[in-house]
Structures are given as C-alpha cells and as structure tokens.
Nucleic acid binder design. Sequence first.
DNA 1: AAGTGGTCTAGACCACCGT
DNA 2: CGGTGGTCTAGACCACTTG
Lengths: 251, 251
Amino acid sequence: MNRDSSRSSFRIAAPTFSPLYRQIKEFMIRSLEAGEWHPGDAIPSEGELAARFNVSQGTVRKAIDEMAAENLLVRRQGKGTFVASHDDPRSFFRFLRLVPDDGSHPHAVSFPLSCATREAGEDAAAALGIAAGDLVVYVERLLRFNGETVVFDQIHLVTELFAGLTLESLSGGDRSLYSLFENDYGVRMIHAAEHLRAVAADPYSAGLLGVQPGVPLLLVERTAYTYGNKPVEWRRGLYRTDRQHYRNDLG
Amino acid sequence: MNRDSSRSSFRIAAPTFSPLYRQIKEFMIRSLEAGEWHPGDAIPSEGELAARFNVSQGTVRKAIDEMAAENLLVRRQGKGTFVASHDDPRSFFRFLRLVPDDGSHPHAVSFPLSCATREAGEDAAAALGIAAGDLVVYVERLLRFNGETVVFDQIHLVTELFAGLTLESLSGGDRSLYSLFENDYGVRMIHAAEHLRAVAADPYSAGLLGVQPGVPLLLVERTAYTYGNKPVEWRRGLYRTDRQHYRNDLG
DNA sequence: AAGTGGTCTAGACCACCGT
DNA sequence: CGGTGGTCTAGACCACTTG
C-alpha cells in the first residue's frame, strides 16, 4: 500500500480517482470478509495500521471513520477499535424495529418451530439472487415479548452458508438469530432492506399469533446482506401491531 | 470564538468537555435557526469561516462534516456548501417512503381536502408538546401516485407557526408540503419519527381511498421536527399497500 | 505510566466548477 | 484562471482506559 505506486497504478488501471483512505477502507473490509479480524476483536491501533499501510494516521482515521459510520467497526476511546458484533447489546435491536407502545424495553425470546430444506419460491429466489426451485434452508419461528407472541417469521437462508442448521441448534432462545449466525456459522449480517405492507391474517398465521383470521397484520419482508452486499437471508415476518408498533426514524 | 478563551470559559461553565468543532457546529445551527442563512443558499467558504472563528480550516471542516451527515448542509465540490432545502429533488423523497411495487419513480401529487383550526386530540397534543384542546391547524389531504389515490393524511400543525394557512395556499399541487412550508412559512423540517401499524380501514377513510371498509391499511403516525428538535407537525397517514409498499433500509 | 482514540494545527497539493 | 471543497501529512497535545 505504498502511497505513490498504488495511486499511480490506480490511475492507470481506473481513471476514476479513488482516494487513499478509501483504498485502505476497501482493504480493511476485505480483511473482515476474509475473517482475519473477528467480531468483537480489537483491530490494530491507528498508529500500527498507519505504519503498515505507510500512510499518516489521519488517513487511516478517515477510513475507520467511514467504517464506523457504516456499523462495521466500533470505536471506544482509550481502548481501541473493535469489529462490530451482534453479540453487543448496543446493536441488538438494530434490525428489530418493533417496540411496545408504552416504550418499554421488551424481553424478546425466539421460539423456533421448524427447520428444513426446501425449494425457494419466486419471492425468496429473487431476493437471494438464485433460481426459483433452488434449495434454501427454511425456518419458521415465533418471537415473544414478555411471553406474548408478537411475530411469526418465515426465514429463508442460502444453503451454501447454512447447510448444517437444525432445529436444535436454533434453540439458543435468548440471543438474537444474527448473534447465532455470526458465532456458529461465521456469517455476519451488515445491512438489510425491508418492505412493509398491511395484510389480513391468514388462518395459519392467525393461529400462531393468537388472533382471528382477517385481522390486520404488518407484513415485513426483509432481505439481509453480508459483506460485499451479498444477500444471504430473506424473511417474511407477520407482526402484531395491536400493542406494539414499528418504529422508524427519518434522518 | 477565540480558541483559548472559549475553551477555558467552557471548562468553567460546563465541566463536560465540548470540542471546538462542536461549539462551531452549534453556533452554525443557531445561524440556520435564526434564518441568517436560507435554504438553498451557499454558506461562507471553509476558509472564511475558519478566519471568522479564528480556528483552522480542518476544525471548520469537521463541524460541516457532521452537519452534512445530518442533512442540514449539502457539500458540492468546486461550488461550495449549501443549506439543505426540500426544494432540492435529491431530498424530495426523504420523508415519503411509499414506493410502487414495480420500483418505478412515482409522480406524486397532493390534493388538499380541507384546512381549518381545531382542538388537538390527545395523540396530537402529546406529540406536539401542547395540551389536549389547544388549537392546531388541521389539514386533510390525499396523495396520488400517477392518478391513483394511495395516501390519506390528517395533518396537525402548531398554530404559532402556521397561523395563516388556507386551503388555497396549499394548492401548490406538485411540490411537496415541506417545500411549501419552507418557502412560504420559513419552517424547515429536519427530522421525523414514524410509528407504523396495520389497521382496518374505517368507512370514511375507505371512501377516500377507494377501498372497502375493513381492508388492511398501513397507519403511519409521524412527528416532524424543526431546528432544536422542536415538534411542529403530527400527521396520521393511511397508506394503501396493495400496489405499493413502505421501503426501509436498516443501516 | 503507557497505550489508545480524539482534537487541533499549518501547510501542501489535488479535483472540480465556473468564467 | 481563481475559488471551492477534498485529500494527505507531521506533529503536538488532550481525554479516556488499564495496569
């Protein structure tokens, strides 16, 4: 990552100018992707990275700044910079936006119902970038807030990464699924996109959620991505919104 | 904003350390709030601000960086730094997350139905930080995508800022309401929080939206804030989600 | 006290936009 | 061309954590 040589070679290869700190960022993302640094670990100090890349500390800082803004890293003054982890309580509710109406912090527990391999439907296939009919790992589970069932999730996972998943291995109960995926399967979710609609409860889902068929439910379809914007999960969630709501902040 | 004096005085007044760039940021936000710089205008160059505040350019940059990240300012290389405006097409859909299922860019048009003064209900009052029964400006309007009605909004505005609002003044049609508020009433919305739920259509709303009563609709309750996190609008929107959905990206 | 991230400086140079 | 924001440097010092 010598300054002059890398920049001039980049100029030749790609006329689109890419600043040094961004090249360093990309390099560090590749390190995360390759598993050189693990979630929860501290990465080398800014000074050491600067020496390693042969740039000034300010340039490394800017690369880390962007990665921290994208929730890939977490800075802690006086301690170091750490790889973000779903184990960290701070990022526990980053992907679950359902909150009780009274504003209290829910005690969320996951109840897996089934886990099997099956053929992907059109929606799941399109979201995961595979062909309809290709195999996916399919999980059904309930989520309970303080004992009350509030979410029914139908989860589709790409087979190549989650081949060994079983119902027993999902019974972690308390910790989030993404925590489990990160620790047991080495797959870290870094981004997700959701599509929301209001739908009428079908009989099967209504039974699981303890409501009458036809009752309005919030349908949340989520595609979750790991490093390199690779989609690895598509889920269809039905949320009860009678005593809780989906919270969203518009920056 | 002399470096040494301001910092030492801050230390005495407030033991909680506040870095220089953040003091500058707060100062600039107050300038925006006071209307010294208007939406769409260019603010002084980094060099000029650095001289004015008697700090280095890098310190001003960091203040501007944060404000740009919060959508208060927009940087344009080679041209300058500008006060963000809802007139800018780039920030046109920042607060409207409903998009057609086919991913196309909708042509959104607003149809105001009524505009009057009335007493705030409990929900509106709580959101706006006033007492139930206090007067608010109340607007009902429809939003159409390519001619089809997709949203029914019930909008509550704080009286002090929107006193002169009439149905005629709302018939801008094409441009967004926030654009109109910014230009005609000097109120710029900088942040909003939404609560989403699925509900069954009441007869009145169903009629306006052209659906059967009881059909599931997406209820979006939004509180919008201007500078200083002052709530100035609370709206209750009912969204048809049969051919469009609410899109949300989880960072 | 040592090590980390956080702030601030002064200056050089580059990329982009307008005239 | 001059003016703007964007990048990069080298070094000083501050704030926070840990031992």
